[in-house]
Nucleic acid binder design. Structure first.
Ligand code: NAD
Ligand code: NAD
Lengths: 225, 225
DNA sequence: AATGCCATGTGAAATGGTTCACAAAACAGT
DNA sequence: ACTGTTTTGTGAACCATTTCACATGGCATT
């Protein structure tokens, strides 16, 4: 009889909520670092992001043992570890399609760059916008999308075009081999199984607030984001 | 012994996910209506939003019986019913604080109005912006926030200010009696228990995509939003 | 009026996520 | 070296959500 190893190739499936919370821990640790904390307990980390200490420890335990019993977690080390888990300890090459209201706001946003998401390409179909300069980036013609996405080695695309054309653009983005898309259009897009698609849906949050108001929801924690 | 009534004052707690899916059903039904569908099955509704038929039926059953066995759900009727559940069968008076990059984009967005969220007040602390006109609304001085929120009967506030001042603004919004806040700043804000706060966190979605890419997540459904 | 068919509505089962509770580990102080 | 204190790491218990499966009800057609 074989002696069982401690973790026999166990395929752990990490939940979406856990990943979202890692983002929160990362944010809190960044702040703690600025405040010159050396270590932090699960209790303090939980307090800062309105979670429970047990939740914090459980989440982290999926990825390893980063703390010291009796002391807590080393702030800088844990922050780096989470960055590595999330894959933000590197730079991602990002393109943005649709330089309209929301698109322009996103290009101007410096925090994304700081977190490793570097917008290096812009696309639009409006002749007045093509060729114009946004934060040092020249807007490309949407007709060259596939070719230029490949040439620029784009790994992630942000979609900020009208809902009516979003599916058409996505199809071309997929053709260019891009595997990750963040979509702002309020529409359910079809992508192949090997392409990751996330939707940013602001109406959904407004509608949740509306629901809470009319139903006098008892407020435990309405959101963790 | 009392004969038990069928639903003896049962306090049903509706989950956050169910409410989010109601938003999706609403969106799908709006489209179905435009396409002149009279009725729709849970199967078709599920297909359009990448959910399961059982999920659709279960979600709706929390609020009543809206369908006809063998036929499906009446599109227009169900749409109205969901609007009523979500509280978007009316107009909400909304103020937006911080008329910067993202704030300007939100003011220009006509879809919110169509869904009953009517932005009627803008606030900023930048002298160059105060008094200026955005889509017919004059930007007010942040110093008059509490007073003007009350006067205008604002029920919901969208926060698009820098993270550093967000808590300060929220405190004043709460003082003005506003019970619902949608926050875009990447910071965990403190509000009293009777105030509903939701956060729109774009970094979180980008980081999820990053995690998916570096971990080659098996793709079932990465997002439902 | 009777039959066949279809899709809802819903308990019950299964799955997944969160909280509990405590042994184990590390440090500090004596 | 020993004792007390603190906080981690983690199975197990608990709770919530999703999926299953089927009885039920209604329509259509004959
Ligand atoms: N503005 C907001 O606050 C907001 C909020 C939530 C969601 N959204 C969604 O984000 C998307 C963009 O909204 P917006 O307000 O920025 O709209 P917008 O009209 O200001 O911007 C859309 C941009 O896409 C470009 N475009 C149109 N067709 C194109 C094509 N075929 N190829 C390339 N570019 C094309 C337009 O030229 C324009 O620059 C929409 O789907 C909208 O529903 C916007
Ligand atoms: N731009 C984006 O794409 C983006 C994306 C995600 C999150 N955010 C967040 O949204 C918020 C706004 O971002 P932005 O890019 O629009 O920044 P911005 O600097 O363009 O806009 C901020 C606005 O708030 C105003 N403001 C500053 N202090 C104020 C005060 N005390 N009272 C009233 N108004 C005040 C400024 O005058 C400015 O008009 C930030 O918290 C940012 O982190 C922005």
């Amino acid at each position: 009889m074989a002696i069982p190893t401690k973790k026999p190739d166990k395929k752990r499936r990490i939940s979406e909520s856990t990943i979202h919370r890692l983002s929160l821990y990362y944010r809190a640790l960044t702040l703690l670092e600025k405040e010159n904390y050396e270590t932090v307990s699960s209790k303090e980390l939980a307090r800062r992001e309105k979670l429970t200490p047990a939740q914090v420890r459980k989440d982290l335990s999926f990825f390893g043992s980063f703390g010291t019993r009796g002391l807590g977690y080393p702030v800088n080390e844990l922050k780096n570890k989470i960055a590595s888990i999330l894959g933000i300890d590197r730079t991602w090459r990002v393109a943005l399609v649709g330089v309209g209201n929301i698109g322009s706001a996103l290009v101007s946003y410096k925090e994304f760059m700081k977190q490793g998401f570097q917008i290096v390409k812009l696309f639009d179909n409006d002749q007045r916008k093509i060729g114009s300069n946004h934060k040092g980036i020249i807007v490309s013609d949407i007709n060259n999308l596939e070719k230029e996405l490949k040439e620029a080695g784009i790994e992630l695309v942000i979609l900020a075009v009208p809902a009516t054309v979003a599916q058409y653009i996505v199809d071309n983005v997929v053709k260019a081999g891009v595997k990750a898309i963040l979509n702002f259009a309020p529409v359910n897009l079809r992508v192949p199984d090997d392409v990751y698609l996330r939707n940013e849906n602001m109406s959904m949050e407004l509608e949740y607030l509306s629901f809470a108001l009319v139903n006098n929801l008892s407020q435990k924690r309405v959101n963790e984001g």
